[in-house]
Design a protein around this nucleic acid. Sequence first.
DNA 1: CTGTTAGCGCCTTCAT
DNA 2: ATGAAGGCGCTAACAG
Lengths: 344, 344
Amino acid sequence: MPGPHPKGGQPTLRDVAERAGVSAMTVSRALRDDPQVLPATRERVRAAADALGYRPNEVARSLRLGRGTGLVGLVVTNLANPFYSRLALGVDSVVAGDGLKTVIGNTGQDQEAERELVADLVARRVDGIIAVPAGADQRHLASAVTDGVPVVLASRPPEGFAADCVLVDDFGGARDATARLLERGHRRIGFLGSPPAVHTGTERLRGFHAALAAAGLAADARHIRQGQTEPDQATRAAAELLALAEPPTALFCSNNRNTIGAFRAIRAADADVSLAGFDDFELADALGLALTLVAYDSDELGRAAGRLLLDRLRDHGSGAADERAEPRPPRQIVVPTSLVEYGG
Amino acid sequence: MPGPHPKGGQPTLRDVAERAGVSAMTVSRALRDDPQVLPATRERVRAAADALGYRPNEVARSLRLGRGTGLVGLVVTNLANPFYSRLALGVDSVVAGDGLKTVIGNTGQDQEAERELVADLVARRVDGIIAVPAGADQRHLASAVTDGVPVVLASRPPEGFAADCVLVDDFGGARDATARLLERGHRRIGFLGSPPAVHTGTERLRGFHAALAAAGLAADARHIRQGQTEPDQATRAAAELLALAEPPTALFCSNNRNTIGAFRAIRAADADVSLAGFDDFELADALGLALTLVAYDSDELGRAAGRLLLDRLRDHGSGAADERAEPRPPRQIVVPTSLVEYGG
DNA sequence: CTGTTAGCGCCTTCAT
DNA sequence: ATGAAGGCGCTAACAG
């Protein structure tokens, strides 16, 4: 048990130095295994540090070294959504390998909150930011880049500035799932999706349309409902579609929230309607309903984003701070999707 | 668009001061709305700061002020578990109100990783730590407290040191759910739970035993399986119980991972076995199986933990750093549970 | 009202 | 192999 320290705070380099009978500098060197320190001295210093329970103050370290805090900012809209918590886990698992910690900021879809959050992360000197921006306006992210903080986007491409990003094959996945419904003979297919402002939502809608077009069909505008972000909204929207005079015989949902909502509507109406959706989710196999889902590795999305960021950070570190080396061009990684069939 | 800054880094107080034709001190004051600054000066400073895109360096600020970084460390074992992501959200929603950010550390059940993480958070001078420790050894948390970093435990009580904590009524919830099964006439009830080292697991097992004892029954040791942390492990364990010569007619599971695993086993065996479990979860109502769940507000768990921490931080702030005021005694909050029945 | 001095804890540079 | 000086960016405390 380390004894109490002078001022009630944590012990500093100087406290250790005093106890070991050396200068602060020697302690600093010894603790970082500087080979120039005499082994005997190093041991004495180590002993003193242990006795005091000394840990270098990372805040002071960051300030002195001038190179960030070893923190990665992660900006998401809703951590309660498994998609985002998976993403967070993926990011953390990769960056932790380089001794970085993840600071999670939850914005709750609020644009202004997101702006504030990003500014704050920059002010806190995070080493980099991984973001899933809520809206179309990404100027706050652009200015983070200008300020020298690398940004990686996940699941949405950068708008109006250059940045690495990791995307899901939204278009292809939606197209394939829709095509699967068409193969089964469906001709009136409804669409339930997130608000049009969300990139993934519009891409998935495009994929939906593309599949119909490829089959020589056009979507019926009355069968398209966008704007649902929570299952109960989706349930209502789906119920409305099912109540139409000519209801769709199948539904495609652009994310797990909508799929779950639609499932409940179908179950409640006891309707004979096929269901497909983007995003796999736990217990999808146990619903007693045939279900076609677009699956992808959401951990991998986070891991890939983490790797892109780490690469950028390495560039930052090695290359001179000046404009000596060309910045490497932005990279874009697309995570593939696959169709999964769950039995009914 | 802010112009580029002298050294390629972000602009500092001095850059702003130069541009505004005042001293660094005046900038510092003006930007913090110190009333002593002449309005005209303040405006000039603000304009200069805006032009440069200046943001105070929070790292330097923290070092100078000596009072933490405005970060709260959150230590959990598995963010992918909805329970923990909810908790995280609850914590964040509360501490964000005080301008604090949440740093999430995921330990993946690894004790050593947890030790390292906590030490690192302390070294980073987080203002406080909220933890769901993985194991029984909590000395690393105790020493964080010794180092002056308040710790709040969530879902497990402190062992061997004093700290605030928020608990779920593990004992009562498990007892009530088990009692419900007994009311329905079950006499051979199996138990599936997490490893015995986990506090919640043992408390819930105690509740299970208590309900049996209250009915004048004793548990059959062969019907108790602890150690499953993931659904597929639980599925295997449940399948083994169902295959016994005298299988249980009902199962009680100590968390959502085990409940989901048991559900699959029951479904696969098409067995006539009643199921109850701790933790509510999405789609529990859609499984086509009667299900009794112990529900509680996991967001609230996080919010309560956040509030306890904020209270401590306020004490820290107001009270002198010395031993002038008695530290307030540790508080313990118990979040109530309720039984939810899902239809079959 | 504004400026100067000093130092938070650490590490780079230059002595010794 | 070790120590002394200086400063990262900011702000309390004390001038003026």
